[in-house]
Design a binder for these strands. Structure first.
Length: 587
RNA sequence: GGUCCCGUGGUGAAGUUGGAGUUCACGCCGGCCUGUCAAGCCGGAGGUCGCGGGUUCGAGUCCCGUCGGGACCGCCA
């Protein structure tokens, strides 16, 4: 890098970036380097070459004959000048100027690319983009996404430093633990038959950093989980991982909030308002999910009381009856679509779905005849539904009712990521235990077994474990779970009681978690922490529906890297050095 | 493990009731062209219709299987 009078992007080969040239540069002799985005020839003595680098595009006017074609890498030295009257292009940032009197050097010729290296590639099969990711990355959208990602990382790091957090790196080769996500294993050459695991998160190490007196730790950590991939899930992903000592929930939320809001400000130029909080119970009750999208209404309305005396069998005796109103949807939803909604509801666990089209003076519905006039009136009052609206009702136990309607609410009403305001929300007071393990009959941990129970509920651990709230919290943005955390248990007696509720004996706890819990006996401070996904935050801030768009080299849903063709089989000699023999493929 | 959608020159699409690898746009190659900016005009090349099997006189089209990609469920303490 050459520091000259032209600024920090100048090098020995160039003075300016293509996208930076403006009317203020008129008269300057410049050198620009980049790829040929497009060429427009007008005979032997005039050609326009749009030169592209990551900053943008500049039109260069060539009046000698040079053979430059799409994606050739060239260097142009010329003079910046105003475009002639009537030939400016206001669709381009550099459209008022051009580079003339050009000397063109071809630095590298190029084959025609398999797809247009511009916004037209947005419509190209993702296969093709991923096979030629280096070409895809040349595009403005991808360069912008990489830079959004870098801004997020940088702002987060800066915010953590500002708050006195210490960056500590934790190992990538860690012991395999039976709990949690499936791990990637790494064979040990020195101990054939033994394996390391790649970390699904630095969880245990960061808590031991607290035992180690670090006080405030953070890391932009790579995490690896061998679970099925989704639009918001890759095998490898990045988290802002943090942990702090001598804190309560408020301290953690404040520190994490500062990092997230700083990142948002760095990308969007405006700091979002303070993050609101709702309890897990309220989130389920109002939105039917533990990661509510607050950008739109259609909240669940409890209508259990409306039907307390009902004779309609599908509703009678249900623990919870709830409704959502789809505004003005009565005419849009035909029988076919309503059947599909019903199928969707059933696939989530509902026994059925009741739909009512609100019409003047009543309902249009296959079950209208089972709803009494007073129930109808009360239903309309409770839901505020008016003629033309579609009302969807589920009756079941509370949890199922909420979950089914919450899923339908998202399916029907959720706007695309790039639309609407950014609505951050803390979901707090998650239940300590979720559901019951079929095999053991014991409750299952909601977060992880070291999560601290809510102080008011500690005495319910033995008598009514499923109603115990925890000091665990999620951060949610527009319906995406960004991350989660908790205040941990640091005292042995409380930990013993939680293990007992989970059906884990002292011996089993020692065996499974001894290496982690024994250190606590040497003095563990009260502590808690959080981790949130940087890929997800970046995707939302970049307006992308899919985290692959903000990852330079992502993998497909089946875990393949189409550019490098990995994973690949390896030579048998390499396997044998590692003490590994593969099984034949079975059908 | 499951459900659904997609696969046609380099790219994106169309392809009807099963009737000739047919069509369109972009790109590519050649020619013309001195103010374009998705330049324009003329000409040309380019195909294992993902792959395999079946039905049929005949399959891009129908059926079965398989591979690849995607969305979702399960899974992700």
């Amino acid at each position: 890098m050459t520091n000259n009078e032209y600024g920090r992007h100048a090098t020995s080969m160039r003075t300016h970036l293509c996208g930076d040239l403006r009317t203020g540069d008129i008269g300057t002799t410049v050198s620009v380097c980049g790829w040929v985005a497009r060429r427009r020839e007008h005979g032997e003595h005039l050609a326009f070459v749009d030169l592209r680098d990551h900053s943008g595009i500049i039109q260069c006017v060539i009046d000698n004959s040079v053979d430059v074609r799409s994606e050739y890498v060239i260097r142009i030295t010329g003079v910046v000048r105003a475009r002639p009257e009537g030939t400016t292009n206001l669709n381009v940032a550099t459209g008022e100027v051009e580079v003339g009197e050009c000397i063109v050097e071809v630095l590298r010729s190029a084959d025609p690319p398999p797809f247009a290296v511009d916004e037209r590639a947005d419509g190209v099969d993702e296969n093709v983009r991923l096979q030629h990711r280096y070409l895809d990355l040349r595009r403005q959208r991808m360069q912008r996404n990489l830079r959004v990602r870098a801004s997020v990382n940088s702002a987060v790091r800066e915010a953590m430093e500002r708050q006195g957090f210490v960056e500590v790196e934790t190992p990538m080769l860690v012991p395999s633990t039976p709990e949690g996500a499936r791990e990637f294993l790494v064979p040990s050459r020195k101990s054939p038959g033994s394996f390391y695991a790649l970390p699904q998160s630095p969880q245990l190490f960061k808590q031991l950093l607290m035992v180690g007196g670090t006080d405030r730790y953070y890391q932009i950590a790579r995490c690896l989980r061998d679970e099925d991939l989704r639009a918001d899930r890759q095998y490898e992903f990045m988290q802002l991982d943090m942990e702090m000592s001598f804190v309560t929930q408020d301290d953690v939320l404040a520190a994490v909030g500062e990092a997230v809001l700083s990142a948002a400000e760095a990308v969007l130029g405006e700091r979002p308002p303070e993050i609101e909080r709702i309890t897990w119970h309220e989130a389920m009750n109002r939105f039917g999910v533990d990661k509510p999208d607050l950008r739109f209404g259609m909240e669940l309305v409890d209508v259990t009381d409306v039907f307390s005396q009902t004779e309609f069998k599908a509703f009678a005796g249900a623990e919870a009856i709830k409704a959502i109103v789809v505004p003005n949807a009565a005419s849009e939803y035909g029988r076919n679509q309503l059947d599909r909604l019903t199928d969707r509801a059933k696939s989530i666990g509902a026994k059925g779905l009741v739909w009512l089209k609100v019409i003047d003076g009543g309902f249009d519905s296959p079950v209208a005849k089972f709803i009494s006039e007073s129930e109808g009136t009360e239903l309309r009052a409770a839901t505020s539904a008016s003629a033309g609206d579609l009302v969807l009702i589920v009756a079941d136990n509370w949890m199922t009712t909420c979950e089914v309607l919450g899923t339908l609410r998202n399916d029907i009403g959720r706007p695309p990521v790039h639309q609407g305001p950014y609505r951050y929300v803390w979901v707090v007071e998650f239940p300590l235990f979720v559901g019951v393990d079929q095999a053991t009959g014991r409750p299952k941990p909601g977060h992880h077994p070291f999560t601290r129970p809510h102080a008011d509920d500690v005495d319910l651990i033995e008598s009514d474990p499923l109603s115990v709230r925890s000091i665990a919290y999620d951060l949610v943005l527009n319906g995406w779970e960004l991350g989660s955390g908790s205040i941990r248990i640091h005292e042995p007696e409380l930990q013993r009681r939680v293990f007992a509720a989970l059906g884990i004996s002292q011996e089993e706890a020692d065996r499974k978690f001894g290496f982690f819990l024994r250190p606590f006996d040497y003095g563990a401070p009260p502590h808690g922490g959080f981790a949130f996904g940087l890929d997800r935050l970046t995707a939302i801030l970049a307006g992308e529906e899919n985290i692959r768009e903000v990852i330079a080299y992502p993998k497909t849903q089946s875990g393949a890297d189409l550019m490098t063709n990995s994973p690949l089989e390896v030579d048998i000699a390499i396997l044998s050095e590692l003490g590994i023999r593969t099984l034949p493929k079975v059908d």
